[in-house]
């Protein structure tokens, strides 16, 4: 497999756990094999060293020199509209929907269940109608292969 996303300067990453969990940051400098210096001026993450294991890399890379100051990072970040682009990704949408689901109340869950039932009912009736319209193709019955059958018996007998 070929890796496409690397720890590199300007790589935008998602913090998977820890105190600033769920926030986007950009890698400013690589300290060693385990840690990188990150900064997230637009997402309220202070410039700090972070373990690489905490980071999930996104597909976005900001073009910038290493060790760029916070203010400048903010400028580029806003210019590139990273957060807007991030919100459009499937990944971000999944996170958002997960959060939405977590915050559902018991009544909301009940309503969701009812809506799903209604949708499935529509789909199933439509599917049934289509099924009725299309002519049935008779399934051909396979003839048993005599030759192989005989061979098997022979082998058994040996």
């Amino acid at each position: 497999m070929q890796f496409k996303r690397f720890i590199e300067i300007g790589r935008v990453a998602y913090i998977a756990y820890g105190p600033s969990k769920g926030k986007l940051i950009v890698i400013v400098d690589v300290i060693d094999q385990n840690r990188v210096l990150v900064d997230g001026p637009c997402t309220a993450v202070k410039r700090q060293a972070v373990n690489i294991k905490q980071l999930h890399l996104t597909k976005f890379v900001i073009k910038m020199p290493y060790g760029l100051r916070t203010g400048l990072i903010k400028k580029i970040w806003e210019k590139e509209e990273i957060e807007k682009k991030w919100a459009k990704t499937v990944w971000a949408k999944k996170i958002a929907s997960k959060k939405l689901r977590e915050n559902l109340s018991d009544f909301d869950r009940f309503k969701l269940m009812k809506m799903k039932q209604a949708r499935n009912r529509l789909i199933n009736t439509e599917f049934g109608n289509l099924k009725k319209k299309t002519p049935r193709v008779p399934i051909k019955k396979r003839k048993p292969n005599k030759v192989i059958h005989e061979k098997k018996i022979k082998i058994k007998g040996m």
Partner: peptide, 26 residues
């Protein structure tokens, strides 16, 4: 939402897979 509320009060509460009551909001 009276129609749904009627159904809601008539229905029993139950937990499905991967639903953890201590993590849920009611």
């Amino acid at each position: 939402e009276k129609k749904l509320l009627f159904g809601y009060l008539g229905a029993m509460f139950s937990l499905n897979n991967r639903q953890y009551p201590h993590k849920m909001i009611f």
